[in-house]
Amino acid sequence: MTQNTSTEEHSTGTHTGKVAVVTGASTGIGEATARRLRAAGWTVYAVARRAERLEALARETGAVPAPCDITVDAEVEALREQVLAEQGRVDALLNISGGARGTDRVADASTEDWAWMYEVNVLGTMRITRAFLPALRGNGEGTVLNLTSLAAHRAYEGGAGYNAAKFAERAMTEALRLEEAEHNVRVVEIAPGLVHTEEFSLNRLGGDQEAAEAVYAGVERPLTAADVAEVCAFAVELPHHVDLDTVTIKPVAQAAPHKVIRAG
């Protein structure tokens, strides 16, 4: 594919024939990214544990529901075999799945929460990336996109467990970029700041709806899942020689992790 053809393809928003695997697709940024790519013509394998949510997404968008726990090797291997058997290729792997648990300081850290965050954000991302790398290399123009967080770039009080997991995911992403450049695999890191989604803060705060809403209280227009999905899609739809490398995204009201403007 020539540069001109790639540029034209991006500008028309038509990516029929391209295959993407999107993890975390049952909610939030992952779901929004799957929707955005389907709207542009991609064949999208929507990956998450909750099959019923994936089925609903499939009915609405035509995405392929692919229930899978990315922390289980056998399930990841079965997913890879399914995609390659049905499509014979994969063009982009978007690792959106992840999450946070708790806001404990190190002195009060929950070993269970820390282990869960590392397992999902780091080892889960490693497992599915490892599984699909041979196909992405074989594609000739494969892309891996890892969704990290502003927490991967700046530590904050009460965030150490999530910081540690996301810093590790960021380090893995940077190493992967060095390792895969010779195979022409493009590696992208997207690091959002404050994003108001249905479940992130709710899950982090143990299901406390009031506490979850307080995270966004008074913030004029925090980012939405669709905002971040647009950037993720833009990154993988650019001509392949263009690598956005590392992109941080914050709402204007979030000048820095420690400075958020709130009305009143």
Rank of each mutant, 00 (worst) to 15 (best):
K166D: 07
A152P: 00
V188R: 06
N121H: 07
L145I: 05
R186G: 09
I96A: 09
A78D: 13
S110E: 06
V83S: 05
A165W: 02
L133A: 13
P67Y: 02
A74W: 02
H183W: 13
E86A: 14
A66F: 06
N121I: 05
A78L: 05
A74E: 15
R130A: 10
A63K: 01
E174C: 09
G124N: 08
A109M: 15
N121R: 06
L84G: 06
V120P: 00
T173Q: 04
K166I: 00
V83C: 08
V76N: 01
V188N: 03
I96F: 07
R130H: 11
T71F: 09
V187L: 08
L93A: 06
A155L: 03
A58G: 08
P67M: 04
C68K: 05
G102Q: 06
L84T: 08
L136F: 09
T129H: 10
G161A: 15
A168H: 00
E60W: 01
P67R: 04
D73V: 14
A131Q: 03
H183T: 12
M117F: 09
W116H: 12
T71C: 12
E141M: 11
L94K: 00
A92W: 02
G88W: 09
A66M: 04
L94S: 04
A171T: 08
D91S: 02
E77H: 09
E157N: 12
G142H: 05
E77D: 14
A181Q: 12
P65R: 01
G62D: 05
G158V: 09
L178Q: 13
E157D: 12
T111D: 15
E75P: 01
E179H: 09
E180D: 03
E174P: 03
E180I: 06
K166P: 00
V72L: 13
T125G: 14
E112W: 09
E77K: 08
A58R: 04
A181K: 12
N121L: 02
V188Y: 09
A78R: 12
L94P: 00
P65D: 06
G142Y: 05
I128Q: 00
T111M: 12
F132L: 13
Y162N: 01
R80M: 04
E77L: 10
L123I: 14
A181C: 11
R59Q: 14
A100D: 06
C68M: 13
E75K: 03
W116G: 06
A100F: 07
R154A: 15
D113G: 03
E112A: 15
T148L: 07
V187C: 08
V90R: 08
